[in-house]
Design a binder for these strands. Structure first.
Lengths: 185, 185
DNA sequence: ACCTGAACACCGTTCAAGT
DNA sequence: ACCTGAACACCGTTCAAGT
């Protein structure tokens, strides 16, 4: 059973799914792979790099259409659903985004899409605003879910309302970026 | 030297300032207070609750004017500067915000300000969008600073540009919230 | 009421030594 | 080349026992 980087990441995703980010340790991961903890370090440099690799994996789901979306609304929704596909996905990706933002194409793509109709600097700022919103919104939703799971908080929030709030935020940022950019041009 | 909650929080802020969030452990905190680790647990329930208390402390700086700002732009800038006043401040507050959002008046106030001119649900969504942006933007800036400090990354980012990006985001969100809300009314 | 001592059940990471 | 064994230097938290 050859232990390689790909196997490690796959096992990490399973732990994330079953136990969340708090339950993901290098030692548990090694145990899951029937291997000594030190063995992991032959294939990956550190836990931080493992999390970056996990983030890349989370964001590597095929887009709903055949191609990657060139529409910002689509890209934002696609990013959201990718984050929601794994427990604590937003926290994992936020961590990776803080460490190595350029290694996450699903996020750098937002900047590229804005760059088609905005000057470079503004495209970057617009993409960052949208990124912060999406990561924060999904992280809040998933953290809430964790609190419910741990029965620290009783009431689960209505999925419809959460989605409506997400769309409100995306629409506001897109409309606002358009206005501010126009105002500066 | 009476050890109470207030002393513990104060010492925690010092550790944050000197060693960052990664350097803040209950054991180090206890050592700094010349006390056994277990002693802390008489005064605070857990490390999570310590972080919530630290977040409250970070956000309890006197506003520049005599009163708390009722203008959203002011409130956003004031929040940003409070977060920047302590190393890793945004990460600490983000954690507390995830755990107990209602315990952070500096953030719930944003919702109240929006509520003066928007229906309740939209005020909440608008406040959350702005909150996610501010927390994300400052976290990104501070994490970058940590990477520079650890010389993982060489170039410090220009403070002026970062501020301009922050203002771009705030203006975009405010303008966009106004437009989307008007559109729905 | 408040704190210590000591333990419990963990961590991430390194590295000689084995195969 | 790849992995084990064993250690190093830590964690958060609990709780009997002391004062």
């Amino acid at each position: 059973v050859a232990l390689d980087r790909h196997h490690i990441v796959a096992a990490g995703l399973v732990i994330l799914r079953d136990h969340g980010l708090a339950g993901l340790s290098m030692r548990r991961l090694a145990a899951e792979l029937n291997v000594a903890p030190g063995a992991l370090y032959w294939h990956i440099a550190s836990k931080q790099q493992l999390l970056v690799a996990l983030a890349e994996a989370i964001l590597t789901v095929p887009a709903p259409g055949a191609e990657e979306p060139s529409d910002i609304r689509l890209a934002a929704h696609w990013l959201r659903s990718a984050l929601l596909s794994v427990r604590d996905g937003a926290d994992v990706v936020s961590f990776a985004y803080a460490l190595e933002p350029e290694r996450l194409p699903a996020i750098t793509r937002l900047r590229d899409i804005f760059a088609a109709r905005l000057p470079e600097q503004q495209a970057e700022w617009a993409a960052q605003a949208l990124t912060h919103f999406v990561l924060g919104a999904v992280a809040k939703q998933q953290n809430q879910a964790e609190l419910v799971r741990a029965s620290i908080v009783p009431n689960a929030v209505d999925e419809q309302t959460v989605l409506a709030g997400f769309e409100f935020g995306v629409e506001a940022i897109l409309a606002g970026v358009g206005r501010v950019a126009r105002h500066r041009a």
